[in-house]
Design a protein around this nucleic acid. Structure first.
Lengths: 198, 198
DNA sequence: TCACCACTAGAACGATCATTCTAGCACCCC
DNA sequence: GGGGTGCTAGAATGATCGTTCTAGTGGTGA
Protein backbone atom coordinates (compact mmCIF):
# COMPACT_ATOMS: atom_id res chain seq x y z
CA UNK A 1 0.00 0.00 0.00
CA UNK A 2 3.00 2.22 -0.27
CA UNK A 3 1.79 3.87 -3.44
CA UNK A 4 -1.55 4.79 -1.92
CA UNK A 5 0.18 6.19 1.16
CA UNK A 6 2.44 8.41 -0.89
CA UNK A 7 -0.44 9.78 -2.87
CA UNK A 8 -2.33 10.38 0.33
CA UNK A 9 0.46 12.43 1.81
CA UNK A 10 0.94 14.50 -1.30
CA UNK A 11 -2.78 15.11 -1.54
CA UNK A 12 -3.04 16.01 2.11
CA UNK A 13 -0.29 18.58 1.69
CA UNK A 14 -1.90 20.15 -1.36
CA UNK A 15 -5.36 20.20 0.19
CA UNK A 16 -4.18 21.64 3.49
CA UNK A 17 -2.14 24.28 1.70
CA UNK A 18 -5.07 25.32 -0.46
CA UNK A 19 -7.23 25.78 2.60
CA UNK A 20 -4.60 27.72 4.52
CA UNK A 21 -3.94 29.93 1.50
CA UNK A 22 -7.64 30.77 1.38
CA UNK A 23 -7.48 31.99 4.95
CA UNK A 24 -4.01 33.52 5.26
CA UNK A 25 -2.74 33.93 1.73
CA UNK A 26 0.67 32.93 0.42
CA UNK A 27 2.96 34.99 2.63
CA UNK A 28 0.75 34.54 5.65
CA UNK A 29 0.99 30.77 5.58
CA UNK A 30 4.07 29.08 7.04
CA UNK A 31 5.47 25.74 6.01
CA UNK A 32 5.32 24.53 9.59
CA UNK A 33 1.63 25.37 9.63
CA UNK A 34 1.08 23.43 6.41
CA UNK A 35 2.98 20.40 7.61
CA UNK A 36 1.03 20.32 10.82
CA UNK A 37 -2.38 20.73 9.15
CA UNK A 38 -1.53 18.06 6.60
CA UNK A 39 -0.22 15.69 9.27
CA UNK A 40 2.98 15.38 7.31
CA UNK A 41 6.61 16.34 7.86
CA UNK A 42 9.04 18.79 6.35
CA UNK A 43 10.89 15.87 4.78
CA UNK A 44 7.78 14.68 2.95
CA UNK A 45 6.94 18.14 1.77
CA UNK A 46 10.35 18.64 0.22
CA UNK A 47 10.31 15.13 -1.16
CA UNK A 48 7.19 15.85 -3.20
CA UNK A 49 7.96 19.49 -3.84
CA UNK A 50 11.75 19.89 -4.12
CA UNK A 51 11.17 23.44 -5.29
CA UNK A 52 9.78 24.26 -1.86
CA UNK A 53 6.98 26.68 -1.16
CA UNK A 54 6.85 28.10 -4.66
CA UNK A 55 6.47 24.72 -6.35
CA UNK A 56 3.82 23.71 -3.83
CA UNK A 57 1.94 26.94 -4.40
CA UNK A 58 2.02 26.43 -8.15
CA UNK A 59 0.47 23.00 -7.73
CA UNK A 60 -2.19 24.41 -5.41
CA UNK A 61 -3.06 27.07 -7.97
CA UNK A 62 -3.32 24.48 -10.73
CA UNK A 63 -5.47 22.07 -8.74
CA UNK A 64 -7.76 24.74 -7.30
CA UNK A 65 -7.96 26.48 -10.65
CA UNK A 66 -8.99 23.31 -12.45
CA UNK A 67 -11.62 22.58 -9.80
CA UNK A 68 -13.05 26.04 -10.27
CA UNK A 69 -13.05 25.70 -14.01
CA UNK A 70 -15.00 22.46 -13.69
CA UNK A 71 -17.45 24.18 -11.40
CA UNK A 72 -17.91 27.08 -13.81
CA UNK A 73 -18.59 24.70 -16.68
CA UNK A 74 -21.05 22.77 -14.55
CA UNK A 75 -22.99 25.87 -13.55
CA UNK A 76 -23.05 27.15 -17.11
CA UNK A 77 -24.35 23.83 -18.39
CA UNK A 78 -27.05 23.55 -15.80
CA UNK A 79 -28.25 27.13 -16.06
CA UNK A 80 -31.12 28.22 -18.26
CA UNK A 81 -28.77 30.48 -20.18
CA UNK A 82 -25.47 32.31 -19.57
CA UNK A 83 -27.28 35.26 -17.99
CA UNK A 84 -29.02 33.09 -15.44
CA UNK A 85 -25.71 31.35 -14.75
CA UNK A 86 -24.40 34.61 -13.30
CA UNK A 87 -26.99 34.83 -10.56
CA UNK A 88 -26.70 31.09 -9.98
CA UNK A 89 -22.96 31.43 -9.48
CA UNK A 90 -23.32 34.37 -7.13
CA UNK A 91 -25.92 32.58 -5.07
CA UNK A 92 -24.05 29.34 -4.69
CA UNK A 93 -20.77 31.11 -3.97
CA UNK A 94 -22.60 33.25 -1.45
CA UNK A 95 -23.94 30.16 0.27
CA UNK A 96 -20.40 28.79 0.55
CA UNK A 97 -19.18 32.09 1.98
CA UNK A 98 -21.82 32.11 4.66
CA UNK A 99 -21.22 28.48 5.54
CA UNK A 100 -17.50 29.11 6.02
CA UNK A 101 -17.79 32.40 7.92
CA UNK A 102 -16.58 34.29 4.85
CA UNK A 103 -13.32 32.50 4.34
CA UNK A 104 -12.16 33.23 0.82
CA UNK A 105 -13.72 30.67 -1.49
CA UNK A 106 -10.87 30.98 -3.97
CA UNK A 107 -7.16 31.23 -3.21
CA UNK A 108 -6.13 32.23 -6.70
CA UNK A 109 -7.06 35.89 -6.79
CA UNK A 110 -5.33 36.58 -3.49
CA UNK A 111 -2.15 34.71 -4.39
CA UNK A 112 -2.07 36.32 -7.81
CA UNK A 113 -2.00 39.78 -6.31
CA UNK A 114 0.42 38.87 -3.55
CA UNK A 115 3.09 37.36 -5.73
CA UNK A 116 2.59 38.88 -9.18
CA UNK A 117 5.57 41.17 -8.75
CA UNK A 118 7.88 38.74 -6.98
CA UNK A 119 7.28 35.18 -8.21
CA UNK A 120 6.96 35.20 -11.95
CA UNK A 121 6.34 31.47 -12.23
CA UNK A 122 3.35 31.70 -9.90
CA UNK A 123 2.09 34.74 -11.71
CA UNK A 124 2.11 32.77 -14.96
CA UNK A 125 0.22 29.86 -13.45
CA UNK A 126 -2.43 32.22 -12.10
CA UNK A 127 -2.64 33.84 -15.51
CA UNK A 128 -3.33 30.50 -17.20
CA UNK A 129 -5.86 29.48 -14.62
CA UNK A 130 -7.89 32.66 -14.87
CA UNK A 131 -7.61 32.58 -18.63
CA UNK A 132 -9.20 29.12 -18.56
CA UNK A 133 -12.16 30.51 -16.63
CA UNK A 134 -12.62 33.34 -19.09
CA UNK A 135 -12.43 30.84 -21.92
CA UNK A 136 -15.12 28.65 -20.36
CA UNK A 137 -17.53 31.56 -20.08
CA UNK A 138 -16.53 32.82 -23.52
CA UNK A 139 -17.28 29.48 -25.18
CA UNK A 140 -20.64 29.29 -23.49
CA UNK A 141 -21.55 32.76 -24.71
CA UNK A 142 -20.53 31.86 -28.24
CA UNK A 143 -22.71 28.76 -28.04
CA UNK A 144 -25.57 30.98 -26.92
CA UNK A 145 -25.18 33.06 -30.05
CA UNK A 146 -23.14 36.02 -28.84
CA UNK A 147 -20.62 37.41 -31.31
CA UNK A 148 -16.93 36.70 -30.62
CA UNK A 149 -15.89 40.26 -29.79
CA UNK A 150 -18.72 40.83 -27.38
CA UNK A 151 -18.24 37.38 -25.90
CA UNK A 152 -14.65 38.23 -25.03
CA UNK A 153 -15.70 41.47 -23.36
CA UNK A 154 -18.53 39.86 -21.43
CA UNK A 155 -16.56 36.82 -20.31
CA UNK A 156 -13.67 38.91 -19.00
CA UNK A 157 -16.04 41.30 -17.27
CA UNK A 158 -17.89 38.42 -15.66
CA UNK A 159 -14.79 36.73 -14.27
CA UNK A 160 -13.39 40.03 -13.03
CA UNK A 161 -16.64 41.06 -11.39
CA UNK A 162 -17.08 37.74 -9.60
CA UNK A 163 -13.49 37.88 -8.42
CA UNK A 164 -14.04 41.43 -7.20
CA UNK A 165 -17.32 40.36 -5.66
CA UNK A 166 -15.36 37.96 -3.46
CA UNK A 167 -13.21 40.84 -2.24
CA UNK A 168 -16.22 42.97 -1.33
CA UNK A 169 -18.15 40.12 0.25
CA UNK A 170 -15.16 39.10 2.33
CA UNK A 171 -14.50 42.64 3.51
CA UNK A 172 -18.17 43.21 4.31
CA UNK A 173 -18.75 39.78 5.80
CA UNK A 174 -21.91 39.79 3.75
CA UNK A 175 -23.14 38.10 0.62
CA UNK A 176 -25.00 41.23 -0.48
CA UNK A 177 -22.23 42.64 -2.70
CA UNK A 178 -21.78 39.31 -4.41
CA UNK A 179 -25.50 38.96 -5.09
CA UNK A 180 -25.58 42.48 -6.55
CA UNK A 181 -22.69 41.57 -8.81
CA UNK A 182 -24.59 38.50 -9.94
CA UNK A 183 -27.59 40.65 -10.79
CA UNK A 184 -25.52 43.21 -12.62
CA UNK A 185 -23.85 40.54 -14.71
CA UNK A 186 -27.17 38.86 -15.47
CA UNK A 187 -28.52 42.13 -16.78
CA UNK A 188 -25.43 42.78 -18.85
CA UNK A 189 -25.39 39.38 -20.49
CA UNK A 190 -29.15 39.14 -20.95
CA UNK A 191 -29.06 42.35 -22.97
CA UNK A 192 -26.71 40.81 -25.48
CA UNK A 193 -28.30 37.40 -25.73
CA UNK A 194 -30.22 36.89 -28.96
CA UNK A 195 -33.93 36.01 -28.88
CA UNK A 196 -34.65 36.39 -25.22
CA UNK A 197 -35.01 38.90 -22.43
CA UNK A 198 -34.17 38.56 -18.78
CA UNK B 1 11.00 73.12 12.19
CA UNK B 2 10.33 70.28 14.53
CA UNK B 3 6.67 70.07 13.66
CA UNK B 4 7.35 69.92 9.94
CA UNK B 5 10.00 67.27 10.45
CA UNK B 6 7.70 65.06 12.46
CA UNK B 7 4.99 65.27 9.86
CA UNK B 8 7.53 64.50 7.19
CA UNK B 9 8.62 61.32 8.91
CA UNK B 10 5.10 60.13 9.50
CA UNK B 11 4.19 60.85 5.91
CA UNK B 12 7.27 59.14 4.60
CA UNK B 13 6.40 56.02 6.58
CA UNK B 14 2.82 55.96 5.34
CA UNK B 15 3.80 56.60 1.75
CA UNK B 16 6.57 54.03 1.72
CA UNK B 17 4.30 51.45 3.34
CA UNK B 18 1.56 52.05 0.80
CA UNK B 19 3.98 51.52 -2.04
CA UNK B 20 5.48 48.37 -0.52
CA UNK B 21 2.03 46.98 0.18
CA UNK B 22 1.14 47.46 -3.47
CA UNK B 23 4.12 45.33 -4.46
CA UNK B 24 4.38 42.74 -1.69
CA UNK B 25 1.10 42.91 0.18
CA UNK B 26 0.66 43.06 3.94
CA UNK B 27 2.35 39.86 5.04
CA UNK B 28 5.04 40.16 2.39
CA UNK B 29 6.24 43.53 3.65
CA UNK B 30 8.54 43.66 6.66
CA UNK B 31 8.86 46.52 9.10
CA UNK B 32 12.60 46.66 8.47
CA UNK B 33 11.87 47.09 4.78
CA UNK B 34 9.42 49.90 5.51
CA UNK B 35 11.78 51.71 7.85
CA UNK B 36 14.56 51.54 5.29
CA UNK B 37 12.41 52.72 2.39
CA UNK B 38 11.01 55.56 4.47
CA UNK B 39 14.45 56.56 5.71
CA UNK B 40 13.14 56.32 9.25
CA UNK B 41 13.84 54.13 12.27
CA UNK B 42 11.94 51.54 14.24
CA UNK B 43 11.66 54.01 17.10
CA UNK B 44 9.95 56.60 14.91
CA UNK B 45 7.59 54.06 13.45
CA UNK B 46 6.43 52.92 16.89
CA UNK B 47 6.28 56.50 18.09
CA UNK B 48 3.73 57.42 15.43
CA UNK B 49 2.03 54.03 15.35
CA UNK B 50 2.12 52.54 18.84
CA UNK B 51 -0.19 49.81 17.60
CA UNK B 52 2.57 48.58 15.31
CA UNK B 53 2.06 47.11 11.89
CA UNK B 54 -1.70 46.80 12.17
CA UNK B 55 -2.23 50.45 13.10
CA UNK B 56 0.10 51.54 10.33
CA UNK B 57 -1.73 49.37 7.83
CA UNK B 58 -5.07 50.82 8.90
CA UNK B 59 -3.76 54.32 8.25
CA UNK B 60 -2.41 53.27 4.86
CA UNK B 61 -5.78 51.83 3.92
CA UNK B 62 -7.57 55.00 5.00
CA UNK B 63 -5.20 57.35 3.17
CA UNK B 64 -5.03 55.29 -0.02
CA UNK B 65 -8.76 54.66 0.10
CA UNK B 66 -9.56 58.34 0.40
CA UNK B 67 -7.20 59.15 -2.47
CA UNK B 68 -8.96 56.61 -4.63
CA UNK B 69 -12.34 57.92 -3.70
CA UNK B 70 -11.26 61.40 -4.72
CA UNK B 71 -10.03 60.02 -8.00
CA UNK B 72 -13.28 58.18 -8.65
CA UNK B 73 -15.29 61.34 -8.00
CA UNK B 74 -13.01 63.32 -10.28
CA UNK B 75 -13.34 60.86 -13.14
CA UNK B 76 -17.10 60.66 -12.71
CA UNK B 77 -17.39 64.43 -12.74
CA UNK B 78 -15.26 64.89 -15.81
CA UNK B 79 -16.83 62.09 -17.83
CA UNK B 80 -19.62 62.63 -20.30
CA UNK B 81 -21.82 60.34 -18.26
CA UNK B 82 -21.40 57.43 -15.80
CA UNK B 83 -21.12 54.93 -18.64
CA UNK B 84 -18.25 56.78 -20.27
CA UNK B 85 -16.60 57.09 -16.87
CA UNK B 86 -16.13 53.31 -16.85
CA UNK B 87 -13.99 53.24 -19.97
CA UNK B 88 -12.20 56.38 -18.82
CA UNK B 89 -11.32 54.73 -15.53
CA UNK B 90 -10.13 51.55 -17.19
CA UNK B 91 -7.98 53.46 -19.63
CA UNK B 92 -6.32 55.69 -17.09
CA UNK B 93 -5.77 52.83 -14.66
CA UNK B 94 -4.34 50.81 -17.52
CA UNK B 95 -1.92 53.59 -18.32
CA UNK B 96 -0.74 53.61 -14.72
CA UNK B 97 -0.30 49.84 -14.78
CA UNK B 98 1.85 49.96 -17.87
CA UNK B 99 3.92 52.83 -16.54
CA UNK B 100 4.68 50.92 -13.33
CA UNK B 101 5.34 47.52 -14.91
CA UNK B 102 2.03 46.24 -13.57
CA UNK B 103 2.57 46.93 -9.94
CA UNK B 104 -0.80 46.84 -8.25
CA UNK B 105 -2.34 50.29 -8.49
CA UNK B 106 -4.38 49.72 -5.34
CA UNK B 107 -3.25 48.12 -2.10
CA UNK B 108 -6.70 47.81 -0.61
CA UNK B 109 -8.11 44.81 -2.44
CA UNK B 110 -4.99 42.75 -1.77
CA UNK B 111 -4.82 43.64 1.91
CA UNK B 112 -8.52 43.07 2.33
CA UNK B 113 -8.23 39.51 1.13
CA UNK B 114 -5.02 38.81 3.02
CA UNK B 115 -6.21 39.90 6.42
CA UNK B 116 -10.00 39.61 6.35
CA UNK B 117 -9.95 36.45 8.42
CA UNK B 118 -7.19 37.42 10.82
CA UNK B 119 -7.26 41.18 11.50
CA UNK B 120 -10.81 42.28 12.05
CA UNK B 121 -9.95 45.94 12.52
CA UNK B 122 -8.23 46.08 9.13
CA UNK B 123 -11.11 44.21 7.55
CA UNK B 124 -13.51 46.86 8.83
CA UNK B 125 -11.38 49.70 7.50
CA UNK B 126 -11.25 48.06 4.08
CA UNK B 127 -14.99 47.57 4.22
CA UNK B 128 -15.58 51.27 4.87
CA UNK B 129 -13.17 52.33 2.16
CA UNK B 130 -14.72 50.17 -0.52
CA UNK B 131 -18.18 51.15 0.62
CA UNK B 132 -17.19 54.78 0.04
CA UNK B 133 -16.25 53.97 -3.54
CA UNK B 134 -19.52 52.20 -4.17
CA UNK B 135 -21.33 55.16 -2.67
CA UNK B 136 -19.55 57.61 -4.96
CA UNK B 137 -20.56 55.67 -8.05
CA UNK B 138 -24.03 55.12 -6.67
CA UNK B 139 -24.62 58.83 -6.10
CA UNK B 140 -23.43 59.65 -9.58
CA UNK B 141 -25.82 57.12 -11.07
CA UNK B 142 -28.70 58.55 -9.07
CA UNK B 143 -27.79 62.02 -10.31
CA UNK B 144 -27.86 60.63 -13.84
CA UNK B 145 -31.41 59.45 -13.32
CA UNK B 146 -30.97 55.77 -12.49
CA UNK B 147 -33.37 54.35 -9.92
CA UNK B 148 -32.00 53.62 -6.44
CA UNK B 149 -32.23 49.83 -6.62
CA UNK B 150 -30.55 49.59 -9.96
CA UNK B 151 -27.97 52.19 -8.94
CA UNK B 152 -26.95 50.00 -6.00
CA UNK B 153 -26.57 46.97 -8.24
CA UNK B 154 -24.65 48.84 -10.90
CA UNK B 155 -22.35 50.65 -8.50
CA UNK B 156 -21.39 47.47 -6.66
CA UNK B 157 -20.88 45.61 -9.91
CA UNK B 158 -18.69 48.39 -11.24
CA UNK B 159 -16.42 48.55 -8.20
CA UNK B 160 -16.13 44.77 -8.05
CA UNK B 161 -15.38 44.45 -11.75
CA UNK B 162 -12.68 47.13 -11.69
CA UNK B 163 -11.13 45.53 -8.63
CA UNK B 164 -11.22 42.15 -10.37
CA UNK B 165 -9.88 43.77 -13.51
CA UNK B 166 -6.77 44.73 -11.54
CA UNK B 167 -6.27 41.10 -10.57
CA UNK B 168 -6.52 39.90 -14.16
CA UNK B 169 -4.38 42.69 -15.56
CA UNK B 170 -1.70 42.09 -12.98
CA UNK B 171 -1.64 38.35 -13.57
CA UNK B 172 -1.59 38.81 -17.34
CA UNK B 173 0.84 41.69 -17.31
CA UNK B 174 -1.51 43.25 -19.81
CA UNK B 175 -4.06 46.04 -19.79
CA UNK B 176 -6.34 44.09 -22.13
CA UNK B 177 -8.52 42.50 -19.41
CA UNK B 178 -8.98 45.84 -17.69
CA UNK B 179 -10.02 47.54 -20.93
CA UNK B 180 -12.52 44.76 -21.61
CA UNK B 181 -13.95 45.25 -18.14
CA UNK B 182 -14.28 48.96 -18.85
CA UNK B 183 -16.17 48.20 -22.03
CA UNK B 184 -18.44 45.69 -20.35
CA UNK B 185 -19.30 48.15 -17.61
CA UNK B 186 -19.91 50.94 -20.06
CA UNK B 187 -22.40 48.76 -21.93
CA UNK B 188 -24.13 47.72 -18.73
CA UNK B 189 -24.54 51.23 -17.41
CA UNK B 190 -25.40 52.81 -20.76
CA UNK B 191 -28.32 50.40 -21.06
CA UNK B 192 -29.84 51.68 -17.86
CA UNK B 193 -29.22 55.36 -18.39
CA UNK B 194 -32.33 57.32 -19.31
CA UNK B 195 -32.50 59.28 -22.57
CA UNK B 196 -29.33 58.14 -24.22
CA UNK B 197 -27.64 55.16 -25.82
CA UNK B 198 -23.99 54.25 -25.85
C1' DT C 1 19.87 77.30 32.62
C1' DC C 2 17.36 73.49 33.39
C1' DA C 3 13.56 70.44 33.05
C1' DC C 4 10.53 68.68 29.78
C1' DC C 5 8.90 67.08 25.53
C1' DA C 6 8.60 64.92 20.92
C1' DC C 7 11.25 62.41 18.33
C1' DT C 8 15.28 59.56 16.71
C1' DA C 9 18.46 55.79 16.99
C1' DG C 10 19.30 51.14 16.84
C1' DA C 11 20.52 47.09 19.74
C1' DA C 12 18.29 43.13 21.72
C1' DC C 13 14.48 39.67 22.11
C1' DG C 14 12.18 35.49 21.29
C1' DA C 15 9.49 33.62 17.69
C1' DT C 16 9.02 32.01 13.32
C1' DC C 17 10.55 31.84 8.50
C1' DA C 18 12.06 28.59 4.36
C1' DT C 19 15.36 25.42 3.64
C1' DT C 20 18.91 21.71 4.32
C1' DC C 21 20.53 17.66 6.17
C1' DT C 22 21.25 13.24 8.38
C1' DA C 23 18.97 9.18 9.96
C1' DG C 24 15.90 5.66 9.71
C1' DC C 25 11.79 3.05 8.20
C1' DA C 26 9.27 -0.16 5.01
C1' DC C 27 8.93 -2.40 1.03
C1' DC C 28 10.55 -4.58 -3.58
C1' DC C 29 13.71 -7.02 -6.46
C1' DC C 30 17.69 -9.85 -6.94
C1' DG D 1 19.30 -11.66 3.17
C1' DG D 2 21.46 -7.77 1.13
C1' DG D 3 21.02 -3.54 -1.62
C1' DG D 4 18.13 -0.12 -3.43
C1' DT D 5 14.33 3.02 -3.44
C1' DG D 6 10.59 5.93 -1.87
C1' DC D 7 9.20 8.11 1.81
C1' DT D 8 9.12 9.78 6.69
C1' DA D 9 11.04 12.06 10.67
C1' DG D 10 12.55 16.03 12.77
C1' DA D 11 16.73 18.52 14.40
C1' DA D 12 19.69 22.24 12.89
C1' DT D 13 20.61 26.60 10.41
C1' DG D 14 20.84 31.30 9.51
C1' DA D 15 17.81 34.87 8.19
C1' DT D 16 14.10 37.72 9.16
C1' DC D 17 9.86 38.58 11.65
C1' DG D 18 7.25 42.21 14.85
C1' DT D 19 8.00 44.25 19.04
C1' DT D 20 10.30 46.23 23.15
C1' DC D 21 13.60 48.85 25.37
C1' DT D 22 17.20 52.02 26.72
C1' DA D 23 19.80 55.94 25.40
C1' DG D 24 20.24 60.10 23.38
C1' DT D 25 19.19 64.40 20.59
C1' DG D 26 17.39 68.98 19.90
C1' DG D 27 14.20 72.39 20.58
C1' DT D 28 10.70 74.89 23.77
C1' DG D 29 8.85 77.19 27.77
C1' DA D 30 9.73 78.53 32.58
Amino acid sequence: MASSTQRDTRDRIVTATAELFRIHGFNGTGLAQIVKAAEATTGSLYHFFPGGKEELAAEVLRVSGQAYRDLVVLVLNEALNPAAAMTDTAESAGAVLEATDFIDPCPIGTIAREVASTHDELRRVAEQVMESWVEAVHDDLIAAGVGPDRAAVLATTAVAAIEGGFVLARANKSTAPLLKVGEGLRTLIATELPHQDL
